[in-house]
Nucleic acid binder design. Structure first.
Lengths: 247, 247
DNA sequence: CGGTGGCTTGATAGTCTTCAATACATGTGG
DNA sequence: CCACATGTATTGAAGACTATCAAGCCACCG
């Protein structure tokens, strides 16, 4: 809190806005904007803060004021089930927007927790809507991002509704691989930031089933798994594994 | 096509716009708008057409140009799975917006089919974004609708990920009941517009399991089911059935 | 009124969960 | 820096739930 207040009050050096210099602007809200427009957007983001591993960014029920763009790091979102346990609804990495589900009810439906030391850019939502009126492309990009969230949720629904354990896990790994490669990381070798239980919660499986499925994929030679370190040995074969899924 | 062209060219009588006279404007895009603003919105909607039971409103892959507000009737949306079969992703009734998932990719991800004789209002999306700039509340309402879609998808994900057959079906029935009552219909007695197979596809179950779950709920005295006609005999008990779901 | 698609119900098989025991990893305090 | 504690992961065996296969029934439409 103190830190951010200081940051806001300190005179900004003759320096491009935060969005302008962000290496991930091609993945985030600024997509397609002119330089001056990105400057404007950057001025919205007067809070930019760190969230350490295990810390909450957002609590269920807290009032909605801002969206949060992930600058770096990794987050999970979860909602509270009737029985008191959490269900993971998504994992978020660099350039992705957190808090979209809160717009409708004016409060956050679930918790958002950092799974790795992270940094986020706070985007006050009323201001985003405000400057969106003068920057049509920004508004369009925002709509595309919301729509993308819906599309992704639909594909998760498809996964949960019609795939079995191994296929779900394979889909999950390929999705991570794809998103990581878009951000300049290896598509074949990466670290899982979440636990087996969190993966299971997201995929509608018990942690033991996740573990067994990992082992099975490894036996088949498709992946190598060592604790949290995964290597995809044959992405084509993994893709075929999903495509062939005939029920 | 011909019909709509005629409609557009014909001189409109001295008459309130379509949204202004629509009895469902409190459920739709006009929520919270002033009369003049609703007039403006109404002018966007120059297409308003019928879709008969079984007919397609939208085809997977077709280019995205408009959203469609359901004026009356009932729709299902579905996406094509890798194995060539369809998975139902949602059911839509009066006042709900169709096509939100197409914004991101510029084309429709799945099919939209009428399950009952229906009527929709076509909302050209570029024009919606355009007049949204001068009507902030319209834009806000649109954002809330998109966000609501995300929230709903998350609750379906929760359902698919952690509930068993009877609980899923109960949740589904209560959801229908709630939405119908908001539209002035009975919350305890209604007709299912979809088949057991479509319900199953949506809930991640086989049609036989849906049928068995219906029978089970009936044996327990919670519902009465007669083909497509359902009566909820004890909504409180049904709610408890979900709330108690401890895994 | 027959046909077709939709629905119900039974028996069996497959998949995932549950319960349980063990092993491993990480991080904290001595 | 090591030891221990706790959280995390693997694996086995038994049980629960849903899918599958199959037969018959029912409703609706032409």
């Amino acid at each position: 809190m103190l830190e951010s207040t200081l940051a806001r009050n300190s005179t900004t050096p003759p320096y491009k806005s935060s969005c302008m210099t962000c290496s991930f602007r091609e993945l985030c809200l600024p997509v397609g904007l002119e330089d001056e427009e990105i400057e404007l957007l950057g001025k919205l983001i007067n809070h930019k803060f760190k969230v350490r591993r295990g810390e909450f960014l957002l609590h269920a029920g807290s009032p909605f004021k801002s969206l949060y763009a992930v600058k770096n790091g990794f987050f999970k979102t979860s909602v509270l089930k009737a029985d008191g346990r959490q269900q993971v609804t998504g994992f978020y990495m660099t350039g992705e927007l957190l808090g979209l589900d809160a717009i409708s009810l004016g409060k956050h439906a679930g918790d958002t927790v950092a799974l790795d030391d992270s940094e986020v850019c706070e985007v006050p939502f009323n201001k985003l809507e405000e400057i969106g009126r003068s920057i049509p492309l920004l508004m369009s990009q925002f709509h595309k991002i919301m729509s993308r969230e819906i599309v992704q949720d639909h594909s998760v629904m498809m996964l949960l509704g019609s795939m079995r354990a191994e296929e779900r896990l394979t889909t999950f790994l390929l999705n991570l691989s794809d998103r990581l490669s878009k951000r300049g990381y290896s598509s074949t070798s990466f670290i899982l930031r979440m636990t087996r239980e969190e993966i299971g919660s997201y995929l509608g499986l018990k942690l033991e089933t996740v573990s067994r499925s990992f082992s099975k994929l490894q036996e088949e030679g498709l992946i190598t798994i060592n604790n949290k370190h995964v290597t995809l040995n044959n992405i084509d074969a993994l893709n075929r594994k999903i495509g062939d899924a005939v029920y």
